[in-house]
Computed example of a mutant assay.
Amino acid sequence: MHVGILGPLLISLEGVAGRIDLAPKPRTVLAVLLVNAGVVVPISSLVREVWADSPPASALRNIQTYILQSRKLLSQVSGASKRAVARDLLVTRPGGYLFGAEFVQFDHLTYQELVDAGRADIRQGHCMKGVALLDRALAMWRGPAIVDVMSGVMLDARRHQLEASKLGVIEDLCNAKIAMGRYHEAVADLAVSVCEHPLHEGLHYQYMRALSMSGDRAHALDVFSRLRMNLVAELGIDPSDPIQELQRSILHSSSAGYTALYPPSMGRMTPVV
């Protein structure tokens, strides 16, 4: 069985996706168990995720009903009996429930394996191989993480973690492509991300580098101006020192720092939005 959370919630068997026909609340319960696969999730945590600080008197009974509905869905998708699902897949444990990970492939875990391997190859100087692995990792995303699930604190935190990881991978990938002289590819990779995250200095830093080295200094300086305007308007702060130094280097037509595989630390990073 394959489970996907890097986009809309996905459960498939042998490449055939099963319809996740669950109402919002049981869908949330199932999603919490999926993103915490292999770990017992306390019933209290499930109640808090679904109803925050205002659970109904029937909350415990409702959670039990949602678990039964989830087991029925998993049985339909996997072809296993409900008894087998309750024994091996969505398991009752003292005080909570556990989604077994032994026979399931999760897209976010495969994604992380590709990311770790790609970054290791880049650090060791195998840039072409590392870039290919990071490209594969990013290609696994089908949209915003668990986008079709009503979320509370736990899922919001997990979604933010995954999205922040994705942005970090985009930075590392484009940094390596710039070091390899693939400036135009880096520009294409960053264009959308910079628009979607107008306060993210790391993405803007790499975008400015790629634009400048591809010969578009005017656009690179415009990117800095828009970043500065957004930071001042939204947060009341100026861009960090490294990106201001990059702007000055571009103004003076300097290539200093452009070819380093790992540029200076960005220092203060603005929030991902």
Rank of each mutant, 00 (worst) to 15 (best):
S70W: 10
C127F: 15
D88E: 08
G79H: 03
F103Y: 11
G96F: 06
A84G: 07
E102L: 10
G96C: 04
S75N: 02
D116W: 10
E102A: 14
L109V: 15
G125I: 00
S78D: 03
I122G: 02
H126Q: 15
Y111L: 09
V77R: 00
L89T: 06
Q76L: 08
S81Y: 03
H126E: 12
R93L: 02
R119D: 12
K82F: 06
L114T: 08
D107I: 05
L90F: 08
G79K: 04
L134C: 07
R123T: 14
G95L: 10
F106Q: 07
Q69K: 11
L133Q: 13
K72Q: 14
S81V: 03
L98Q: 09
V131T: 11
F103A: 14
R87M: 10
Q76R: 12
D107M: 05
H126C: 09
S78C: 04
Q112M: 11
Q105S: 15
G100P: 05
S75R: 01
Q76T: 14
P94M: 01
K72G: 12
G130T: 08
Y111M: 11
Y97N: 05
G125D: 06
F103N: 11
D116E: 12
R119P: 07
G125C: 04
C127D: 15
R119V: 15
V104T: 06
A80Y: 10
E113C: 11
L109K: 12
L133I: 10
R119I: 14
V131D: 06
R87T: 14
V115E: 09
R93N: 05
L133R: 15
A101L: 12
V91M: 02
G118T: 09
S70L: 05
